[in-house]
Amino acid sequence: KTKEMCIDFRKNQRCPKPVYIKGEAVERVETYKYLGVVFDSKLNWKENINSVLKKVNTRMYCLRKLRSFGVNSGMLVTFYNAVICSIIVYGSVCWGGNISKFDRGRLEKIVKKAGHVVGMPLDSFKTLYEKRLLKKLMQILNDPTHPMRHYFDSRRSNRSGRFLPHKTNTNRYKASFLPSVLSVFNENYNSH
Rank of each mutant, 00 (worst) to 15 (best):
Y151F: 11
D143M: 14
V93I: 15
A82C: 14
T78R: 13
K109T: 15
G74Q: 12
M120Y: 00
V111L: 09
L133V: 06
P121E: 05
G97Q: 09
I88P: 04
Y80E: 06
W95T: 06
L164E: 11
K112H: 12
L76Q: 09
A82R: 05
G97E: 05
R155P: 00
I87T: 13
K126D: 12
Y129S: 07
R104T: 02
R106Q: 14
R159P: 00
R149P: 10
V111C: 06
R159Y: 08
M148C: 10
M138A: 08
H146Q: 10
S154T: 15
R156G: 08
F125T: 04
E108Q: 09
P121G: 04
V111N: 02
P121Y: 00
N142K: 12
S92R: 04
T145Y: 03
S86M: 10
C85N: 12
P147M: 11
L128A: 09
I84W: 00
L164V: 14
A82I: 13
L137P: 00
I84G: 08
M120W: 00
K136R: 13
R156D: 06
M120E: 11
S157K: 11
N98C: 13
R162I: 14
I110N: 00
I140A: 01
I110S: 14
N72H: 14
M120K: 07
C85R: 14
G97A: 06
S160H: 12
G161I: 08
G74C: 12
C94K: 10
D153M: 15
V77R: 03
I99L: 09
H150W: 08
W95H: 03
I88M: 08
I140K: 02
V118G: 02
A82W: 01
N81M: 11
V83P: 00
D153Y: 08
D123W: 06
Y80N: 03
G91K: 11
R159H: 11
F102H: 01
V93W: 06
L122N: 03
Y129Q: 12
S157R: 14
S73K: 14
F102W: 00
R159F: 13
L164W: 12
F163M: 03
S160Q: 03
G97L: 10
P147W: 03
W95Q: 07
S73G: 02
T127N: 15
K126Y: 15
I84S: 01
L122G: 02
E130F: 02
H116S: 15
K135V: 00
L141D: 04
N72Q: 12
V111S: 04
F163P: 09
S124V: 10
K109R: 12
V111M: 07
S124I: 13
F79C: 07
R104K: 15
N142P: 05
S157W: 02
M138G: 13
C85T: 09
H166M: 04
S100G: 09
R106M: 03
L107E: 05
R106G: 01
P144Q: 13
C94Y: 06
F102S: 14
F152P: 07
M138K: 08
I99S: 00
W95L: 08
G74A: 11
L141P: 01
N158T: 09
L137M: 05
K101P: 14
H166K: 06
S100I: 01
I140V: 15
F163T: 12
H150R: 15
G97K: 11
G119V: 11
S73E: 14
K109F: 07
L141M: 15
R156F: 13
T127I: 14
R159G: 08
K112C: 12
